[in-house]
């Protein structure tokens, strides 16, 4: 359950931002989570509910935006969607694909008051 640790990091980030930007409550948190990343969005949502209790993000909605996997095929010399980290190129079926996106784990924005 490293999602618990990740969620604690999210709440830490929110609290730091609250100090820096002077707001007292977070009502929505929008995350970007790569589809090929290390994290299960369902577990993250579950943990967020527990970890945010009693913090400035208590009761905040969590909006998880899934970032699709993307790669670069060296044979086609163009971008290809990736279904899995070590997936084949969608155009030529080749394996010489470098992952270029899809393992993001970011707090993108939040709604505060």
């Amino acid at each position: 359950m490293h999602e618990m640790a990740l969620t604690e990091s999210i709440v830490d980030i929110l609290q730091e931002e609250a100090r820096r930007r002077a707001f007292s409550r977070v009502t929505l948190v929008r995350l970007e989570i790569g589809a090929l990343g290390h994290v299960d969005p369902r577990a993250l949502a579950f943990c967020f509910d527990a970890v945010s209790r009693g913090t400035i993000a208590d009761g905040a909605a969590l909006d998880i935006v899934s970032v699709p996997g993307q790669g670069w095929c060296f044979d086609c010399e163009k971008a290809t969607p990736l279904e899995e980290r070590f997936g084949a190129c969608a155009h030529c079926g080749g394996r010489r694909v470098q992952m270029t996106g899809g393992d993001e784990m970011r707090v993108k924005e939040m709604e505060v008051e």
């Binding site: 990740l6 990091s9 999210i10 980030i13 931002e17 930007r21 707001f23 009502t27 995350l31 784990m105 970011r106 707090v107 993108k108 924005e109 939040m110 709604e111 505060v112 008051e113």
Partner: peptide
Amino acid sequence: ERMVSIERDIL
């Protein structure tokens, strides 16, 4: 209410 863009990696 306002939207605040922070763009910070969770890790």
